[in-house]
Design a protein around this nucleic acid. Structure first.
Lengths: 210, 210
DNA sequence: CTATTTATGTACCGAGCGGTACTGATCCGA
DNA sequence: TCGGATCAGTACCGCTCGGTACATAAATAG
């Protein structure tokens, strides 16, 4: 179907990308519509016509973030063993939250853990999406138990929770300015903890020490 | 020195306590001055006269929070061994971020990890205070190395970072509504990781498994 | 008593918020 | 070339923001 009417004067996908960065840096409440339109290079009515409003734009931004900036997580899930899943997840998470071409931390947390009662749905939406990722990881660990890759007594849900907690802590730390190398050390300690607590089969020799 | 002029019609300390809860639940930016005065039971001019302004009130609220709600941390630091310091810290942190008589999570994170550029000092202040706690923990671990309680090759700074990362993740998770018991499991995994990675002397038998 | 000092409560300030009405500009199809 | 459709830009909406002026109430000092 050919286009009808005047064509859009900006790239909606690229403008959304700019919005991602503003929300990431300033949070949902800290990002004003004026901040957003300035970064996106458009006017307010264009924002409302193309995305529906501030909250809808935020949800679209989070979706884009999950697809582009969290791609490493899907890659991690595809690793053959639970240990390698966690190793990839934690190490790649450290890289993701400390990219120099991106705001520090993670949009899912920077977006807002707390907010005014008016915006409570936003914080709830972010929390739910984080917990959804945790559920997917638990499913992956359950598969590992079924495959004998994790021992039968391992608790997939508890292990997934631990890994996500570490990831979230890494993101908070990164937002505070902690360096990639410093976070890497912490990731290795967490990985050792995972190995010790889960009884996971290790790829090489022993757990690392700091 | 006797009082001069009309006496204050409210308890400044109790009102500050109410402000702590509002900031904790809604974050710095999400808490409007009207929200605060309503919860504190005072009018705006009283707030400005007694505390100086919104940002000053927030700083006083954080100070009060650190003194009252983080008392468990000072208790943890006084434990005799590094392992017990971490065990107390992580376990008590789980309790602190899931109190039913308090907002979920931790003011230091709920207060705001990201915010508008106008309020950047607030986020920076919170990040700095978290990292200060991490430094204190690193000092405690350094003492443990000196005392032979941690092996000489243990890295106090890296270990402290790991523990704080887990604490922050626990707070984020708690704010998302995860239960105390669920967080406890994660704390035990982290503790096992600390033991495995640090080579700390354990109080009893072996590391726990989930 | 009056004078002084401090707190309270109302009413208000300029500024910015999220969101929109309206006027033109720019494309398509007929 | 013209009509319908969609977008762009300005200018504005009501509302709330953080913060304050001002008049009044309640205490002490003399």
């Amino acid at each position: 179907m050919p286009q009808r009417g005047r064509p859009r004067g900006f790239d909606a996908d690229e403008a959304l990308e700019r919005a991602v960065e503003v929300f990431w840096r300033q949070g949902y409440e800290g990002a004003s519509v004026s901040d957003l339109t300035a970064a996106m290079g458009i006017n307010k009515p264009s924002l409302y016509a193309a995305y529906g409003g501030k909250e809808e734009l935020f949800r679209k931004a989070v979706a884009r973030y999950a697809e582009k900036d969290m791609a490493y997580a899907r890659n991690a899930f595809a690793q053959p063993t639970a240990y390698e899943v966690v190793a990839t997840l934690l190490r790649e998470n450290v890289v993701a939250v400390t990219r120099t071409d991106r705001p520090a931390g993670c949009l899912s947390i920077q977006g807002g853990t707390a907010c005014s009662s008016d915006n409570a749905p936003v914080a709830g939406f972010l929390a739910a999406s984080r917990l959804a990722g945790e559920g997917a990881l638990a499913d992956r660990f359950a598969r590992a138990v079924a495959e004998g890759d994790l021992p039968a007594h391992a608790d997939p849900v508890a292990l997934a929770r631990f890994v996500m907690i570490v990831s979230e802590g890494q993101a908070v730390h990164a937002a505070a300015g902690v360096s990639r190398e410093d976070l890497r050390q912490a990731a290795e300690i967490a990985l050792a903890g995972f190995a010790a607590a889960s009884g996971a089969r290790l790829p090489e020799q022993a757990t690392q020490t700091v």
